[in-house]
């Protein structure tokens, strides 16, 4: 589904990603872990098409197409969803209006008629249950005045609405208490199918107890320095990142 080859990316001339290789197949969950500043969020943003980052080298194909040539909105319509580490507030734009526009853009892209207001509201009701989000939140402006936990839940709600093929969860666990974490993780698991894939970017192993990865990759200094099964996450939790850094230095 997603193939990343030797991906290099810079911001303001500074190289952050220094040759990433990764292969993600349908049905898989990949965890990307690593210390602060290793390039995890950069990788997530580069895949989603954030223009602040410049890809200086490498290839990314998504569903057989060159991803790097696509504008951010086209990547989204083709099925890439980024759950933001810091979801953005858009005052005055209601969640309903925002989501309706987004859903209908996706539908248009897939050759479908836009949803009627009543159909759309029904869809929202159904998806809200997945992350136990209340109507009070969806009636407000996008992320405005939401608590940290509500913002993250709102991200997963949007994911439920858009049904992406590849979801990238950037530090979705940060700022969540244990109950919210469980709700968010349950949401992600509910949305899991054999056809879609998930990349979970996280510092901590905690989230991975709920969203169990097939693969764990350690990103350090712009490269994936270690890949293994889910047991790697436990090892990292127990031993920290220093031994990885040492291994990488050798």
């Amino acid at each position: 589904m997603l193939t990343i080859k030797n991906l290099h990316a810079t911001i303001d001339g500074k190289e952050i990603l220094k040759g990433i290789n990764l292969e993600v197949k349908p049905g898989e969950i990949h965890a990307i872990m690593g210390p602060n500043g290793s390039g995890k969020s950069t990788l997530a943003n580069v895949l989603a098409g954030h223009e602040s980052f410049e890809v200086s080298e490498g290839e990314v194909t998504f569903l057989g197409e060159n991803l790097l040539e696509q504008a951010a909105e086209d990547r989204a319509r083709n099925g890439i969803f980024l759950s933001f580490q810091y979801p953005i507030e858009i005052p005055g734009v209601s969640m309903v209006n925002f989501m309706k526009t987004a859903v209908n853009e996706h539908r248009k892209h897939n050759g479908l008629e836009p949803l009627k207001a009543s159909q759309f509201l029904r869809l929202m009701e159904e998806k809200k249950k997945i992350v136990e989000i209340s109507s009070q939140l969806t009636n407000r402006s996008v992320n405005e005045g939401f608590s940290g936990g509500e913002k993250k839940r709102n991200e997963i709600f949007q994911m439920a609405m858009l049904e992406p093929k590849l979801a990238i969860l950037d530090e979705t666990d940060s700022g969540l208490d244990i109950d919210a974490l469980r709700i968010v993780a349950n949401g992600v698991n509910t949305l899991k199918t054999p056809e879609n894939a998930t990349i979970v970017v996280t510092h901590y192993q905690r989230l991975l107890e709920y969203i169990v990865p097939d693969y764990v990759h350690v990103l350090y200094n712009g490269r994936i320095v270690k890949s293994a099964g889910k047991e790697l996450a436990y090892e990292l939790e127990a031993k920290g990142y220093d031994w990885i850094k040492e291994e990488a230095a050798e």
């Binding site: 989603a48 909105e73 989204a76 526009t101 987004a102």
Partner: peptide
């Protein structure tokens, strides 16, 4: 803000309008 809208499939022009 614009990127957030882009990432949900809304193009820049429409995002700014919104």
């Amino acid at each position: 803000q614009v990127f957030y809208c882009n990432q949900r499939g809304i193009k820049t022009e429409d995002a700014i309008g919104m």
